[in-house]
Design a protein around this nucleic acid. Structure first.
Lengths: 120, 120
DNA sequence: TCGAAGCATAGATGGTCATCGATATGTGTG
DNA sequence: CACACATATCGATGACCATCTATGCTTCGA
């Protein structure tokens, strides 16, 4: 369960030195592209997008697996698998209370990726 | 080559009627999740991210296939395939001048997806 | 203490995809 | 016209992935 979003964004600055608004910027690094693709891959699934949205829409901003299985029409292990993918990518947190495991959105995670997307 | 970004965003408004900032929003629709996942899937590949970035960084904001093959270390058919995926998703335009096919970014396409991402 | 419920993991399977080589198509040049 | 070059398409292949069933683990209540 590695929770990590690239906090240190490799600044693809538009202004370097004296020349502002140059015609050509520095392209994304191979490593940066690999990292961003991992973050995007975790979201590039209809069911996972719906999971994120349903958790955000759920009261309290959190939901347990049992809340999410039926409306998606997926089995419990499949939902559990998707939630793990999202948690590993840093989009969700997992809190166990009693028998239930509550998943919640990491604040600003989606905005972070959206911001990264515009730097490409 | 279907160039189309979801211009009509199904507004997941935060404020409905008199009650502002409700605890629960409306979750994304299954169709909306499917559409957004298609857009994200097209970007969720390291080589395609690098292609988009390299085209944006290239002088004139456009590049032909022959400009992109060598720095990526991919064969020409593979690069051509990735560019088609990106163009079909609405991220790139294709302009043929003579023997060469020039690909350029669709202005605002990335920002559009980034904005959609925050509505999830 | 025992059973039921919620969740995670393991293994299997069918589908999708990234990549390649080979080839077709189109375009400019001699 | 013939040839060289840039690009697109086709078919194959290996890897990855979404989903399932079966099963193990933990926690709560009777």
């Amino acid at each position: 369960m590695t929770i990590e979003l690239p906090v240190t964004v490799t600044s693809a600055a538009c202004c370097i030195g004296d020349t502002c608004a140059p015609l050509t910027r520095a392209p994304i690094t191979p490593g940066g592209a690999e990292d961003l693709s991992v973050l995007l891959k975790a979201l590039a699934d209809p069911m996972r997008l719906r999971l994120v949205s349903m958790i955000a829409a759920h009261e309290g901003g959190e939901a347990c697996v049992c809340d999410l299985t039926e409306p998606l029409g997926l089995t419990q292990p499949t939902v559990s698998h998707h939630l793990k993918v999202l948690a590993d990518a840093g989009y969700l947190t997992r809190t166990k209370r009693g028998t239930w495991a509550y998943y919640a959105l990491v604040p600003g995670a989606l905005d972070s990726v959206a911001a990264l997307l515009r730097t490409v």
